[in-house]
Amino acid sequence: MLFLSNSCKNNSSVSEESNVKKSDASVNYFKLDLGKPTLKSKFENDTWSIWGGSMVKGNDGLYHMFYSRWKKELGWAWVTDSEIAHAVSNTPFGPFTFRDVALSSRGSNYWDGLCTHNPNIHKFDGKYYLYYMGNTGDGKTTTFPGKLVLNPSHRNNQRIGVAVSDSPNGPWKRFDTPLINTGTHENALDALMVSNPSVTKRPEGGYLMVYKAVGKQKPGIWGGPVVHCIATSENPTGPFKKYDQPVFQTKDYDFPAEDPFIWYQKGKYRAIVKDMHGAFTNVGRSLVLFESEDGFDWKLSDTPLVSELKIDWANGYTQTVDHLERPQLYIENGKPIALLCAADIKDSQNVIHSFNVQIPILE
């Protein structure tokens, strides 16, 4: 028979306690590790600027990507000329083939009549919900290849909508009023414009949305500050209740974050966020990970870095890009499969060339 001394017993207790802590840590640990996409996962076009893909699987077994596009000859004219197009593939990693335009222009008298942009697609209870930004305005496009020229009448008329269909192939039912409009109070966080919705289903029922907003506290046509807001609803088509509580903020930077994609996994809400300035890590502009217990109080994850401004291609080439943003996860059976991002580079003439990429998520 083997007898343990008190010191051995204490060591055993410490070891057991350490194992428990390690076990708890492993339960709470969450990190997104990116694989290396092949070139078939690069979606681009010679005549169209491509941006912001979001993916869903259809009952036909195909993968349907919704993305923003506008004529490349117009320059970086997303704010006036973007439309949401639809492409399909046999795999989540492409190659994707253009099928049709899901949300086209429909007249300046509609709130989303001249521009549709930044899709966020979901399948909820058998129906497909395409969340997006739409706007109208004076319809004037400033053709200036390689340069970003924002038309303020379109930029400040950005609103959030949703289109609904029984199939990702459409037809899509659009609505005559926005899903999220600007706040009616002059000091509202979203008094000037709203954009870039991301929606997820809540585990207790209902839906959570995070969206970009601009207020009117700052003087001038562009307003400010730029923040992100929370809204909830019992139904995917609303009405959504807004909360006067900005998220993804930091005292050291004005407009620190953009393009959050939210989802729920392993007992917490998660968000991939574009770090505009290196506000949240020491690597500069990047994609970073946030988490939340309730969807309202967000904190930076323990392992926050998702990606720097680069793509590690499967052929061994590491491509540095000017922007890597509009992160959208494709999630299947509760598991992230692919990270969809928009990226761009400039040529020797300083003209912007953009594309979408589907990056595999590692186990």
Score class of each variant (00 low, 15 high):
16 E>Q: 15
17 E>Q: 05
19 N>R: 15
23 S>M: 13
37 P>K: 02
37 P>M: 11
38 T>N: 14
42 K>W: 11
44 E>R: 11
44 E>I: 06
51 W>S: 01
58 G>D: 06
62 L>F: 08
65 M>A: 03
80 T>M: 06
83 E>S: 08
83 E>R: 11
87 A>H: 06
92 P>K: 12
94 G>Y: 07
98 F>E: 01
102 A>V: 11
105 S>I: 06
109 N>M: 01
119 P>V: 01
125 D>P: 01
128 Y>P: 00
134 G>Y: 01
135 N>S: 15
135 N>L: 15
145 P>L: 03
153 S>A: 08
154 H>Q: 07
155 R>N: 11
159 R>I: 05
176 D>P: 00
186 E>G: 01
187 N>V: 09
188 A>G: 03
193 M>P: 00
200 T>M: 02
205 G>L: 02
208 L>H: 00
217 Q>E: 13
217 Q>V: 07
224 G>C: 05
226 V>K: 12
226 V>Y: 08
236 P>D: 04
241 K>Q: 11
251 K>D: 05
252 D>Y: 11
262 I>E: 02
263 W>Q: 15
266 K>P: 03
267 G>I: 11
268 K>T: 11
273 V>R: 14
277 H>P: 00
278 G>C: 07
283 V>W: 03
284 G>Q: 13
287 L>S: 07
290 F>P: 03
293 E>L: 15
296 F>N: 08
297 D>R: 15
302 D>Q: 15
307 S>L: 10
309 L>W: 07
311 I>D: 00
313 W>D: 04
314 A>G: 05
316 G>N: 10
318 T>V: 10
322 D>N: 11
324 L>H: 04
335 K>C: 08
338 A>S: 15
339 L>G: 01
347 D>S: 14
348 S>I: 13
359 I>V: 04
361 I>T: 04
